[in-house]
Design a protein around this nucleic acid. Structure first.
Length: 561
RNA sequence: UCAUCCGUUGUGUAAUGGGAGCACACAAGACUUUGAUUCUUGUCGUAUAGGUUCGAAUCCUAUCGGAUGAACCA
């Protein structure tokens, strides 16, 4: 037995230390707290995998909590989409919670703070308050309303709740320290007036708690042990703890906020505003366009939940700045699809070949293996006939020895079929090759066991029988941005880096077995890449999205020479 | 130029005072009815300068570099 070296990320170290210090394993509880104001993206996926992954690892419950404190931005539609995406990723939350579940408790606690002289109503404009806030290097100044009496504060707060005031006229502020080096501690706003209907509480409330006042207290109410968020909230920790101090009672779990670095993916943007710009500017068709980094986009692109979880696992979690190459994500989807995707044949760029010694009316149904890595996947039949399509790039009149494909006078194996030899070709008036005449070796049939079938020829091509071919719309995707970090340039707008060729739509010719493919089915077009059936598919027209290409060392060779 | 955080191969991450490891990428080779997959091997790293210590990626100091911080957003 060799000792296994366990490697933990820094958050797991924190949990392990807490466990050693006396936390009970049964007290561990985590949460994933999205705001329902948009669609989840690959960055959220990392956070989901982190929190739910820890839940699985420690056998701890994980709550799905919607941080719904701003009715101006939040909608039920997003709640539903988020739940779907988390489930699709393969995780189960313990309970579904909403910050809005705690509005009553939050209000009561706020009243308590007012009574203790730790919060006050400020009746200035936001501009005046901003002026008094100071700068990171200069202390702020106190509001003229800072020392209102408890009674007056209570009355005003009640009035705010009762809807007696216009938006912007009053706010509730925590009375902390206008000179703190942490700007967030300079009397942060706890409540603002918003005469807006909330997607869950409707018009019950017209004052809504701010993030800082809500988040830690929600963690506390749910008795979350570890509250993990991204680095931009590091400054908020001091406030998080201050608010917690006001309500914490001995004997309860005291939630601990810790921060990790957001994972950045190359060649993409992830901010809601920018994603919206792509949708509204018709750069992409929708939020679930297969080029979008949203979870719904990745799903439509053909990514599997496993591949995304494996990706999140490999990139790990830390506190340093990072830019993860999108090719790592592509590696993981290839890696998973290689194991599970059935192999099929499809020609995307057809060139007609005619087997001159194959009888005109003859057709054969050949055995084809569904997945060479998985015996249980079995076999299917593919039709073979005299006239076939192969890829244009698989034929050259003349080529050197490194070209393992079809050339005049050369032989090649047709996958699952026969060995053929190119004899001649015909061209149109522009000199384009439009047809290749070949002969086939009738004894070389794949799997027949004959001496001829065992012959080694260097190249193997995929193909499709023209008269049996299924026409399909094929959408070929490329990266949406040409720059690896499009939104980090100070002097350039990210839209300048949009790749104009990120989508190419062509007609492909597929083996007829694909007629029964269903939406979201994923297959490998042999020698090309992984594809999945798009929801735009109808009974008349099947649409495939290219998920990712196969690794292509031949492309590298041709490029470098 | 105030506060907080962070600097480990090309990228991401591990090593918590004692082996700089893993994955991807890259390179070479083997196998192959997918130029795929698989397998083998290889190249490359602790920001800099001091200090503490028998011993430092790890602790201390300074320097350099980066990120974050002034929304009635989350």
């Amino acid at each position: 037995m060799s000792e296994e070296r366990v490697s933990l990320n820094f958050l797991e170290h924190i949990i392990e230390e807490d466990l050693e210090k006396g936390y009970q394993k049964a007290q561990l509880r985590f949460r994933f707290p999205p705001e329902p104001n948009g669609y989840l993206h690959i960055g959220h996926a990392s956070s989901i995998c982190l929190n739910f992954g820890l839940g699985l690892k420690y056998g701890a419950p994980v709550n799905l909590r919607f941080d719904d404190t701003n009715p101006a931005k939040e909608e039920q539609e997003f709640v539903d989409a988020i739940k779907r995406d988390v489930e699709w990723l393969g995780y189960q939350w313990d309970t579904e919670r909403y910050a809005s579940d705690y509005f009553d408790q939050l209000y009561d606690w706020a009243v308590l703070l007012i009574e203790q002289g730790k919060a006050y109503i400020d009746s200035q404009s936001s501009e005046d308050m901003a002026k008094q806030k100071g700068t990171p290097t200069e202390a702020g100044s106190e509001s003229p309303f800072r020392n209102r009496s408890v009674e007056e504060n209570l009355a005003l707060f009640e009035g705010m709740k009762a809807g007696k005031f216009e938006e912007g006229t009053h706010v509730l502020r925590a009375k902390i320290d206008m000179a703190s080096s942490n700007m967030l501690m300079r009397d942060p706003i706890m409540y603002r007036i918003l005469h807006k209907a909330h997607h869950r509480t409707n018009t019950d409330w017209c004052i809504y708690p701010m993030y800082d006042w809500t988040h830690g207290e929600s963690d506390y109410i749910e008795q979350v042990s570890h509250s993990f968020c991204t680095l931009e909230f590091a400054m908020h920790r001091e406030l998080y703890n201050w608010f917690l101090d006001q309500v914490y009672e001995e004997g309860n779990m005291r939630p601990k906020q810790r921060e990790f670095a957001r994972r950045n993916l190359s060649h993409t943007v992830v901010s809601k505003r920018k994603l919206l710009q792509l949708v509204e500017g018709n750069v992409v068709s929708s939020w679930d366009d297969p080029r979008m980094p949203t979870i719904s986009g990745l799903r439509r692109r053909g990514y599997t939940p496993e591949s995304i979880r494996n990706f999140a696992d490999t990139i790990g979690i830390a506190k340093r700045e990072n830019l993860i190459d999108v090719s790592l994500l592509e590696f993981h989807v290839r890696d998973h699809l290689n194991k599970v995707a059935p192999r099929v044949m499809g020609v995307l760029n057809p060139l007609k070949i005619v087997l001159t010694n194959y009888p005109e009316e003859q057709e054969e149904w050949l055995d084809a293996e569904n997945n060479p890595g998985d015996e249980a996947a079995g076999f299917r039949k593919v039709p073979f006939s005299r006239e076939l399509y192969i890829e244009k790039e698989d034929f050259k009149e003349e080529a050197n020895r490194k070209f393992f494909r079809l050339k005049l006078g050369g032989e090649v194996r047709l996958k699952n079929g026969y060995i053929i030899k190119a004899e001649s070709c015909t061209k149109d008036t522009n000199g384009n090759i439009i047809e290749v005449q070949c002969t086939y070796d009738p004894k070389s049939k794949s799997g027949s066991g004959s001496e001829e079938s065992l012959r080694k020829v260097k190249g193997t091509l995929h193909w499709v029988s023209i008269k049996h071919a299924l026409e399909a719309e094929i959408r070929l995707y490329d990266r949406l941005f040409t720059d690896e970090s499009p939104d980090t340039h100070k002097d350039k707008d990210f839209m300048e880096f949009v790749n104009p060729d990120s989508l190419e739509v062509i007609t492909g010719y597929l083996e007829p077995s694909l007629k029964n493919a269903r939406i979201e089915d994923r297959v490998q077009f042999q020698r090309i890449g992984y594809f999945c059936v798009d929801p735009d598919t109808t009974s008349e027209k099947i649409v495939f999205n290219k998920t990712v290409g196969l690794r292509d060392t031949w492309a590298k060779i041709t490029q470098s020479s």
